[in-house]
Design a protein around this nucleic acid. Structure first.
Lengths: 140, 140
DNA sequence: ATAAAATGCTATCAATTAGTAGTATTTAAC
DNA sequence: GTTAAATACTACTAATTGATAGCATTTTAT
């Protein structure tokens, strides 16, 4: 059960972009408004482009905009693209084969909570959080 | 939502020890049976002693045994001792003040899943997983 | 007493993840 | 065509986390 800082950054930025889903955002606006280090975000944005969540428009007046319908971009896709599938779905004890051939001692107890998390992330799209954005300064 | 590798190691070892809750285990037996690097586990064991989960008995014929009733050692205590309280309870976007003065855009959607995880970890003691242990080799 | 078998401590190394710097490339305005 | 404003790329640095090494200390068996 792991959510890297990078995934958190992605959530912040994509959530922010979802507010106006058709708009074109410059990297500058995105790192300023979401408290993500500039260069780190720039790299993350090109990754998110390669993953197909957003697309970049180069050159003067360029920026980033969604590449797909945001009602079809689910949070779990974002985490899995960045942190890998094991990060969320993996065994709580870190055993590779757990739930495949065998179950670890904590498997049953953990399964239920894990499924709940996976379902939440799988059923929530960027569209679902579209109108929940607040002033980001509030969170500093 | 974070569970470090170290916490996973702690779960493995404490879960293993719970099988025979009154027994005295040597570090040697513990790292062999639970696939945790020797030196790393030794350090972890002294941490777990300082946290009060287990106690160490020094000298020849020494080892580790539980310091408290295992029906009162809940999984969440273990994670929080090792990874800190924010690791599980923190904001999904990583904002410090979220849920204090303000809520982040994903707060509501995430809250439910998070509470589920926290409840599972808070309500599960080492006693609860006592008889679920299997051969550890199975997970390699 | 001494040796053996255990834990304790501290410093260091390695791997992973997060963050930065600098330059190249693309495109539109003029 | 030149400049300005944007993204793209690559190599490097820093911070965190995981792992190791080596020696010190404690206690029991002999």
């Amino acid at each position: 059960m792991n959510l890297s800082k990078t995934s958190k950054y992605a959530f912040r930025v994509l959530g922010y972009m979802a507010k106006d889903e058709k708009a074109l955002y410059s990297a500058r606006q995105l790192y300023r408004e979401n408290n993500v280090p500039e260069k780190y975000l720039r790299r993350l944005l090109t990754h998110l482009s390669k993953f197909g969540f957003i697309k970049s428009i180069q050159g003067r007046q360029g920026g980033f905009t969604f590449a797909r319908d945001i009602s079809k971009i689910f949070l779990i896709e974002i985490v899995e693209a960045i942190d890998g599938t094991e990060s969320i779905r993996g065994c709580i004890l870190g055993y590779k084969k757990c739930a495949f051939n065998f179950s670890c001692p904590m498997h049953d107890i953990w399964e239920d909570a894990k499924v709940h998390v996976i379902n939440t992330l799988s059923n929530t799209s960027l569209k679902d959080i579209q109108n929940k954005m607040v002033e980001t300064d509030s969170f500093l």
